[in-house]
Amino acid sequence: MHIVDGALSSPVVIGGALIAAGGVAVGLKKLPLERIPAAGVLSACFFVASLIHVPLGPTSVHLILNGLAGLVLGWAAFPALFVGLLLQAVFFGFGGLTVLGVNTTNIALAAVLAGVLCRPGVVRGSPFVASLWGGLAGGLAIAFTTVLVGASLALSGEAFIPAAKLVFFAHIPVIAVEAVLTGMAVYLATKVKPELFGALTPGKAI
């Protein structure tokens, strides 16, 4: 899902950077200083989760879990996922530098959208209902991300359109895996610690 330097056209790179900057700014604004330790630990949690490989057919995929990040962090998913991508680029060489904005937008915007759509269902329902909404969030987030990745490629040049389509179809099984996994994770989290999905909303004591 990482796009690298040099592949995208300048308008796409700049547009992605602007959206990412806006998203990070909103996320930071909604994050009072007292919640930063919690956000940092969760950001680290999603960083570690993204290193988990699960089997898929003859191969394995690594998790992204941006849907879960959106559910737990809300808008704070933007800065949290940005930090994760920055660390991945700088220390592991994943992705690129000038495309950091585009990559952040592709993953975090999808996370926030899925979070906004599905969080009410997760917070209100029973663990079973919550897990269904959680699964929906997990699947939706990856679907949004692949569409955004495809759009970034397609907007950069006609030659990328087949690659963009390939990215989308190749990710359909990943969407299913992320949906099941996120649903299960939400099921367990709501059973063990029901207040978790409200942990970062302002006004409530942690």
């Binding site: 630990v41 969760l42 680290a44 989760a49 299960m184 994770a185 099921y187 367990l188 989290a189 610690k193």
Partner: peptide
């Protein structure tokens, strides 16, 4: 999924 959920719960407890 349960593993990730548990990781999340423990992360929040830790925070």
């Amino acid at each position: 999924g349960y593993l990730v959920g548990m990781l999340l719960v423990r992360a929040v407890d830790r925070s």
